Computed example of a mutant assay.
Amino acid sequence: MNKAIWTGITVAALGLGAVSWTAQVMAQGQGQTVMGQTKTLFGGQVSSWAKLDAKGQVLEAGITVPMSVVEKAPLPGPNDKPQAEGGPGFGPEAILEFPAAVKKTTFLDHVQVWWEGFGHPPERYLTPHFDFHFFGVSAAEVAKIDCKDLTPPALELTPKGYAPAVPPGANAAEFCVPLMGFHGVPMSEFSAPGQLKPGLFDHVLIAGFYKGQYTFTEPMITREFLLKKQNLDLEVSRPAKTGRKTLYPTRFKLTYDAKANAYYLAYSNFQAGE
């Protein structure tokens, strides 16, 4: 996440190695784990996957991130400068498609992993961190997010417990990020209306929008937090009405597996919504 909160919004190792995303399936009890894609990131293998029940319904959808990826994520040098939004080289470090079962039956389509070595303004987010964009639209659609459409998300799209992605009366152009869109931040990030909490953050769950649609859910997690090998279990809040009838995740879990020395980032507890 970048400019949407720069301005403050009055806001693998599963032990699988390189896996073919077209074929890999592992039996697991009465259900199965189906692999999506595997990509190389900072010398490690990050993979997408889904856990299905005996009827083929999605129980979990997520990615595996080896600890080596966290440890080897490059920190900026004294002469390095942050990427300019929309400029040369601006884009995610890895894009992972989900298995077909996830795409067909749930909100989730693919994951884009961004590494923010500098962090980004405001001060609360000026620390190295990962942005894990779990998109509900295709990568081809995301590539077209150029912020030429500055229609602010309708207030009814604001998830419960979140600040509006574009405050009423604000200039929407200041809150749109190319290849991402508009970002909604939980109210828990604020100490007062329009005032973010002091100090550096460690993790936050963002909601994303573009062209009047709910488009992504984004765990934003610092490198420092990940190096501590901690777990998270968060409620996922979505708009009451999205205009899309599908299954939406209601839980997000970050789980460290000591044996694999890797993190699993997973969405689960899917419920019908529209």
Rank of each mutant, 00 (worst) to 15 (best):
G91M: 07
G91K: 09
A94L: 11
I95M: 13
F98E: 01
A101D: 08
K104E: 15
T105D: 13
L108D: 10
H110G: 07
H110F: 06
V111W: 05
Q112P: 02
W115C: 01
W115G: 02
F118L: 03
P122D: 15
P122V: 15
R124T: 00
R124F: 03
Y125P: 11
T127F: 01
P128G: 11
H129F: 02
F132K: 06
G136K: 03
A143K: 14
I145F: 00
D146W: 12
D146G: 13
C147W: 08
L150E: 03
L150M: 09
P152D: 00
E156Q: 14
L157I: 03
T158L: 02
P159K: 01
K160E: 15
A163F: 00
P164E: 08
P167L: 05
P168D: 05
N171R: 11
A172N: 07
F175Y: 03
V177W: 15
V177Q: 15
M180I: 11
M180E: 06
G181R: 10
G181C: 01
F182G: 00
G184N: 01
P186H: 11
M187R: 14
M187W: 13
S188A: 12
A192P: 06
L196F: 15
L200Q: 14
L200K: 15
H203C: 09
V204I: 05
I206W: 06
G208Y: 04
Y210G: 01
K211V: 08
K211S: 07
G212N: 12
G212P: 05
T215K: 05
E218D: 06
P219C: 06
